[in-house]
Simulated scan of single mutants.
Amino acid sequence: MLGSLSAFIASWMVRRLAPLASGSGIPHVEAVLAGLTPSASVGLIPVKFIGGLLAIGGGLALGREGPSVQMGATAASTIGRLLRLGPVDCRSLLAAGAGAGLATAFNAPAAGAIFVLEELVGRFEARTACSALGASVSAILVSRALQGGHPDFVVADSPMVISVSAQLLFLLTGLAVGLLSVLYNRTILVTLRLAERINVGVEIRAAIIGAFGGLIVWLTPHLAGGGDWITQSAIDGTLVWTALPMLYVLRLVFGSVSYAAATPGGLFAPMVALGALAGLGCGDLAHVLSPTLAARTTPFVVVGMAAMFAGAVRAPLTGIILVTEMTNTPSLLLPLLSGSFAAMFVADAMGEAPIYQALRVRAAGEKR
């Protein structure tokens, strides 16, 4: 009941007060930086904040990073307008605010800056790079002063030494996760299309999905939200391998349905959780085939997280740096590069568009 009511209120707030607050918000930020649409008003921030708390707190499988990115971008854009800065400065400030939002959400300052250049802007700009780095560092200093500087996920016995001969296993892991990243993108888009065909109001649809989320919270509370518990359990290797396929399908469907509720919420954390599950499955299989080369599953989980991001978002540098900062595993750089390359190769070969690009094109088509 509470999950249904929370989703209903969040959806109502979005539709009535700030329609741009729906979903992740990252496609909208990209459209603003591309000059395709104006930036959102400051009224989006409280709707995104409260709506995100209600949706994620109510049990929907959504991440915190999308709202953080859009709120950061909107706040920075508002400051630029109040200071009467020029269009170029306002654009750099907006991008920097978005990067600071991502950096704070994952306690990952370098990833926040790289995300701006690789995904939001799509090219290196000295002004934007400087602004993004400054904003990310400033945001992290404040965040760590309030919450501490521990990484999001704990990896035991780090650093890890990976033999050169084991790189083939990580390459194969990236290929497998690349296929799953294509499945992830297509599931999100298909679910959105199916949800639109349901002849009910947006708030009623959100309430129905919220009731489903509330049921999952009641039965298995660890499966709700962004999926941090799932990711940490995969890193620790405490999940039974026979349960991985069912758990993966459940989170995939639940996450896609949650995003179709049109409430504030992001895709990063759920995507990373799915990558962790896929990586654990690949690690278990590799250990059976070659116990010597694949003595531990943890490296495969970390590679799966980055590979899922690389295949779905098509921003490999951001994914590699983000996962490295979240897990504090710089020793896995070469496996991360191998897995991310393979995942991107598969997604590109299958002609799959990056998820945020697909969502942006879809949103533009709805406005016509």
Rank of each mutant, 00 (worst) to 15 (best):
residue 61 A to P: 13
residue 79 I to S: 00
residue 77 S to I: 04
residue 64 R to A: 07
residue 69 V to K: 06
residue 65 E to T: 06
residue 31 A to V: 05
residue 63 G to Q: 11
residue 80 G to E: 03
residue 43 G to I: 07
residue 43 G to M: 06
residue 47 V to A: 11
residue 53 L to N: 06
residue 35 G to M: 13
residue 49 F to I: 12
residue 62 L to R: 02
residue 27 P to W: 10
residue 21 A to M: 11
residue 21 A to N: 09
residue 39 S to N: 08
residue 30 E to T: 09
residue 61 A to I: 02
residue 65 E to S: 07
residue 79 I to C: 09
residue 37 T to F: 03
residue 34 A to M: 09
residue 56 I to F: 01
residue 27 P to K: 08
residue 52 G to A: 06
residue 74 T to G: 12
residue 29 V to Y: 02
residue 64 R to Q: 07
residue 57 G to C: 11
residue 22 S to M: 08
residue 57 G to A: 03
residue 42 V to G: 06
residue 27 P to D: 12
residue 48 K to E: 04
residue 21 A to V: 13
residue 68 S to T: 14
residue 47 V to F: 04
residue 55 A to G: 04
residue 43 G to H: 03
residue 42 V to W: 02
residue 50 I to Q: 05
residue 24 S to H: 14
residue 38 P to K: 15
residue 67 P to T: 13
residue 49 F to K: 04
residue 59 G to Q: 05
residue 30 E to K: 12
residue 58 G to M: 13
residue 54 L to R: 04
residue 36 L to M: 11
residue 61 A to E: 06
residue 44 L to T: 03
residue 45 I to K: 08
residue 80 G to R: 06
residue 29 V to L: 02
residue 29 V to D: 09
residue 32 V to F: 09
residue 50 I to L: 11
residue 36 L to F: 07
residue 55 A to L: 08
residue 54 L to E: 00
residue 45 I to G: 05
residue 34 A to P: 09
residue 32 V to E: 14
residue 76 A to R: 07
residue 24 S to L: 08
residue 46 P to I: 00
residue 40 A to R: 07
residue 42 V to E: 04
residue 29 V to C: 06
residue 24 S to Q: 10
residue 78 T to V: 03
residue 60 L to H: 00
residue 66 G to S: 10
residue 21 A to W: 12
residue 21 A to F: 13
residue 43 G to Q: 10
residue 51 G to A: 14
residue 67 P to G: 10
residue 24 S to D: 15
residue 52 G to E: 03
residue 58 G to Q: 11
residue 50 I to Y: 01
residue 68 S to C: 15
residue 78 T to Y: 12
residue 64 R to W: 01
residue 61 A to L: 00
residue 72 G to R: 00
residue 54 L to H: 03
residue 42 V to F: 12
residue 52 G to F: 13
residue 48 K to D: 02
residue 49 F to M: 13
residue 56 I to R: 12
residue 33 L to R: 15
residue 38 P to W: 15
residue 74 T to D: 09
residue 52 G to P: 04
residue 34 A to S: 09
residue 66 G to N: 11
residue 78 T to M: 00
residue 34 A to V: 01
residue 47 V to M: 06
residue 73 A to D: 05
residue 24 S to I: 09
residue 41 S to H: 14
residue 68 S to G: 12
residue 75 A to C: 01
residue 33 L to H: 10
residue 48 K to R: 09
residue 39 S to F: 02
residue 70 Q to G: 11
residue 54 L to Y: 09
residue 75 A to M: 05
residue 62 L to Q: 07
residue 75 A to E: 02
residue 53 L to T: 11
residue 42 V to S: 03
residue 76 A to H: 04
residue 72 G to Q: 02
residue 68 S to P: 06
residue 27 P to S: 11
residue 44 L to Y: 07
